[in-house]
Amino acid sequence: MTVGVALNASDAENQVDASVSLAREAAEAGLRSAWFGQTFGADSPQLAAIVGREEPRLHVGTSAVPVFGRHPLLVSSQAQTAQAATHGRYHLGLALGTKLITESGFGLPFERPIARLREFLTALRQLTRTGTADFHGELLTAAPPISARVPGAENGVPLLVAAMGPQALRASGELADGILPYLAGPRALEEHIVPALTAAAAAAGRPSPRIVALVPGVVTDDVEAVRAKATEQLAFYEQIPSYARVVELSGGRRASDVAVIGDERTVAAEVRRYRDAGATEVVFTSTDIAGEADRRRTWALLGELAG
């Protein structure tokens, strides 16, 4: 099982420089992948391309680019460029986004998100694999009159979706290469997410999808203080129905209830639970909430598990 970390250097003086530095440290610790979120700040595919080129020991990924406010042609250009820059080590994550961010940030109505996701994935797969497309959907058109191929990215780009609900899981199983569930504990994965995803993929005649579980986690001795900090940091997600639902399915009440916090033995056991629940990869997020020493301690353990 691959083990990686999400890197967040948005508070640094220079986010690109700091991300490269963190990626080198992650690789030295034995981690296998580094992932970058997408908000309204740094361009995640571009950041992943730079970091992946500077640190060839890591696979890099985006988690995740919202499909609202983007077009498959533009995202394909970004993803193929990142794939060429990293010589095949880039993984593109897509997300539905949220009503709040879509409507307040982009001024777009958050309507028919699953239909948009399906059309986006269909067009994007054609573009990233062949450099061309002739897609005319209800919501999107992608039919470039000239080639959209990026030399060096001929093998395509793995497409993952931040999917956890039944409809998104069905679309991802049929059209994507895997998923990026966040705040979904082992119980939610094993009982709800993995069965729905694999059934959809099997019905479509596709191989078993990847399940890259994004897990807030820290190795620390100060469990109570770190969990209190995690509760504060993760409270935002409790306002979003999809996250609130998956936390409940995981047996939690607050988002921080699914955070993995404890000593090395505790955290290693929880990582194994994710593997046993069907996760093919585990990516730790929020490893900086307890300070530098605990972050390094967390990465050291994850590097051992990756080995």
Results as ranks from 00 to 15, higher is better:
3 V>E: 12
9 A>G: 06
14 N>C: 09
17 D>G: 13
19 S>R: 04
19 S>F: 10
34 A>M: 03
42 A>H: 02
45 P>F: 00
49 A>Y: 15
58 L>A: 08
60 V>N: 11
62 T>C: 09
63 S>V: 15
66 P>F: 09
69 G>Y: 10
71 H>I: 04
75 V>N: 07
75 V>Q: 04
78 Q>P: 00
79 A>T: 00
88 G>T: 01
90 Y>T: 02
92 L>V: 08
95 A>V: 03
106 F>M: 07
115 A>N: 04
123 A>W: 07
123 A>C: 06
126 Q>W: 09
126 Q>F: 13
130 T>N: 06
155 N>C: 04
155 N>W: 01
159 L>M: 12
162 A>H: 14
167 Q>P: 06
170 R>S: 03
170 R>Q: 08
171 A>M: 10
177 D>G: 01
180 L>K: 14
181 P>Y: 01
188 A>T: 06
191 E>W: 14
192 H>T: 09
193 I>H: 11
200 A>D: 05
200 A>K: 07
209 P>C: 06
213 A>L: 09
216 P>M: 01
216 P>L: 03
221 D>K: 15
226 V>K: 09
227 R>D: 07
232 E>S: 07
233 Q>I: 12
234 L>C: 13
239 Q>T: 15
239 Q>H: 13
242 S>Y: 03
249 L>N: 05
256 S>N: 11
257 D>V: 10
262 G>Y: 08
264 E>K: 06
273 R>K: 13
274 Y>R: 03
274 Y>G: 05
284 F>V: 01
285 T>G: 10
288 D>V: 01
295 R>V: 06
298 T>F: 12
301 L>M: 06
306 A>F: 11
307 G>H: 14
